[in-house]
C-alpha cells in the first residue's frame, strides 16, 4: 500500500515518555479525523508497545525507542515500535494472554490489548538485538459514523 504521510521519532525508554509517545501518535493520526474510540484504541496499543520496551527490552538501563507511523492509502495507519533491547525468547508465549515474566503488578495483557484494539499486529524479535512490533489499524473516521 502506498504511503500518504509518515513520521519518525526516537524517545528514551523512560516511563514518563509513555504518555508522550501515545499522544504524539494520536496527534499524527488526527489528520484522518478518527472517532474518539479509534483514537483511544491507537493510544492504548501504542502505550502497551512502548511500556513493553521500557519494562522488558531495557529492564536495567535506559535505551532508545524508535517509533514510526505512516498513513497508508485507504486510511490505514501503520505504527511500528522498535527497540534494540534484550529481545523476546519465545514470541508466541509472550503473546499469550496473562503470560508475564514479571508477575505482581503486570497483568500479562500487553499483546492481548494490542491484538484486540488493532486490526493486525506483527512481532519480530531477535535475542540480544531487539524487537519490532508493527500495528495496523484502519481508520474509518467520524464521517463514517
Amino acid at each position: 500500500m502506498q504511503i500518504i504521510n509518515e513520521f519518525r521519532m526516537t524517545v528514551d525508554s523512560k516511563s514518563i515518555n509513555e504518555g508522550f509517545s501515545r499522544a504524539a501518535v494520536a496527534a499524527f493520526v488526527a489528520q484522518l479525523d478518527p472517532t474518539l474510540d479509534e483514537i483511544s484504541d491507537i493510544k492504548m496499543a501504542v502505550s502497551e508497545a512502548v511500556t513493553n520496551c521500557i519494562v522488558h527490552a531495557y529492564p536495567t538501563s535506559v535505551g532508545k525507542i524508535y517509533i514510526y507511523a505512516a498513513i497508508l492509502d485507504g486510511g490505514t495507519v501503520k505504527v511500528s515500535i522498535r527497540d534494540k533491547g534484550c529481545g523476546i525468547m519465545d514470541v508466541r508465549q509472550a503473546m499469550e494472554p496473562l503470560f508475564t515474566t514479571l508477575g505482581g503488578e503486570r497483568a500479562g495483557l500487553g499483546f492481548a490489548v494490542m491484538e484486540s484494539f488493532t486490526d493486525k499486529i506483527s512481532v519480530r524479535s531477535v535475542l540480544g538485538k531487539g524487537t519490532t512490533v508493527t500495528l495496523y489499524k484502519k481508520i474509518n473516521g467520524r464521517a463514517a459514523v
Binding site: 502505550s47 497483568a107 490489548v113
Partner: peptide, 8 residues
C-alpha cells in the same frame, strides 16, 4: 485513559 497497567 487506561492501558493494561490499570488491570495490573
Amino acid at each position: 485513559f487506561m492501558d493494561s497497567s490499570g488491570i495490573g
